[in-house]
Write a protein that binds this DNA or RNA. Structure first.
Lengths: 283, 283
DNA sequence: CTGTGTCTTTCATTTCACGCAACACCCCGC
DNA sequence: GCGGGGTGTTGCGTGAAATGAAAGACACAG
């Protein structure tokens, strides 16, 4: 039932973009799947739908006719569904994991459209260490996570960047003259630590690490106490309760920007609720 | 694509018969599949479509509305397909196996509607021993077989009875007074032999077997030569070249009727051509 | 309480769709 | 000519989904 309409949707999107890669990205399917979906359609119909030229893709005559059919069929379906919606699609429960900072700084704006569209959905918000986000997601404890996303995700997860913040060096206001030599307070592990390590390595120095706390918030507390210079995403600094006692140290080159993403299990994108979350938090 | 329409077709058929068993038989799916297809539909829509009472099944209000949608959607699809038929569905090649007798007596009438509907399809007709029919089918040498069908088919095959003939005892006209005691000419193996054996066992006698030829036609020749009393489907007798020299001996109780079926591989029923053959040879 | 006609569930099997990765192809700039 | 980025496609292993056979639940009749 629904499956068939997914094929039609893919076809229609492709008929508009005339670009396999683009449709593949927009519709969250691998290029292979898209190719074979179209091949299945063409085989089932017994007609070529697209001309694949080296200059790109174009609709064949049959493709145009089938497009008309697909639009009509999908419209019929949409009409039916509007009049007889699935009551289950508008309710349910969604568990979202976010770091404390993401909670404060990003979630309100990020989730507002979804919240407005589906007010009956109960949102469970879990917070914790950024490093735990993906594990919680993978284990099925939560349905979505907002956190720094590593370049290589575990297989079954997909993510989309929802914000980019820079990494900044920060120290206690009364130690601002210490510069970038003094002892450092670095996260024990995680993406920020890796970025910091890369930055030091790029300058050919080995930092003097004075402390390695677990979370960004705790890190800032140590920095405010004068334990050393810290590295955090600016977003964390801006939302810190101790930001008045801290100051940013300019660094050249500046550390790499730090992307924060919304991450979900790929298979969940088929669930209507998750699909809605994904598209309503998108661009 | 096509899959979805199969679901709609099943639903519409069931909405008309209001009987799972009947629809299951007519549409060549197991009851389990039908049940779950409907369950899938209902789950996908989020609405009950049928009320299952002990007294039978009835459409719910949602069921009626969905039925209207299904009819419309299927009509849209049929219209599209009529205007843009799959050229591959009308051509191709079909290998049919049949016993000599089935060829002569049944195939013309059986295949006429199919032939009329798909004149471009090339029909390859293979003949041979009835016992070989299922083997040829299973090995993929032929696409369909017309022959006596055992009660238990090999897993991947399905059959439908297309004719029923009685088994008759037959002897040479000039030995008609020999009765049912004389020596017998029985097929060496196969369904007729099994039925004959059961008949003898039911009467508690052990037949005096004078010959065990391989095919029914050869058997009749031996009988005509006076070698003994034979057992054959009446259909074979009626189409025999030597029938003028033979006579039927009444037997009580008469041997069990002998069903002749059209048999195909189950998976082939999805191929449009085979599906057409199946439905056009049906009731 | 067995038999009969329903529809559903359990289970093992097969089939199918998917993503990943490798591939083929083309065009472009040097 | 020859890498390099950008197309779309194919080989392959895996995991989910659909299937049929058979057993099960349930109501009802004799």
């Amino acid at each position: 039932m629904v499956n068939d309409h997914r094929e039609l949707r893919l076809f229609l999107h492709l008929a508009q973009t005339l670009n396999f890669g683009r449709t593949s990205l927009d519709c969250h399917v691998s290029p292979a799947t898209l190719t074979r979906t179209v091949q299945r359609l063409e085989a089932g119909l017994g007609h070529q739908l697209f001309d694949r030229g080296p200059r790109g893709v174009s609709l064949t005559a049959e493709g145009h006719r089938f497009r008309a059919y697909a639009i009509e069929a999908l419209g019929l379906w949409r009409t039916y569904r509007e009049e007889h919606p699935d009551p289950a699609e508008l309710t349910g429960r969604l568990a979202v994991f976010a770091t404390v900072t993401a909670c404060q700084a990003l979630l309100p704006d990020l989730l507002a459209p979804f919240r407005a569209a589906h007010p009956q959905v109960r949102l469970d918000l879990r917070t914790g260490d950024a490093a735990a986000a993906l594990a919680r997601l993978d284990e099925g404890e939560v349905d979505a996570a907002v956190a720094g996303i590593p370049a290589r995700l575990p297989g079954p997860l997909v993510s989309r960047t929802v914000a980019v913040t820079e990494l900044v060096f920060v120290t206690a206001r009364d130690r601002a003259d210490a510069g970038l030599d003094g002892p450092f307070v670095l996260p024990h592990r995680g993406l920020v630590r890796e970025a910091a390590d890369r930055w030091f390595r790029g300058r050919g120095v080995t930092p003097d690490v004075a402390a390695e706390p677990d979370g960004h918030e705790g890190l800032l507390t140590l920095v405010a106490l004068g334990c050393g210079t810290g590295v955090v995403p600016r977003l964390v600094l801006d939302n810190s309760a101790v930001r008045d006692r801290l100051t940013v140290l300019p660094a050249t080159p500046p550390p790499e920007p730090f992307p924060i993403g919304l991450c979900v299990r790929r298979t969940d994108l088929r669930r209507p609720l998750m699909s809605a979350l994904w598209s309503l938090t998108g661009p």
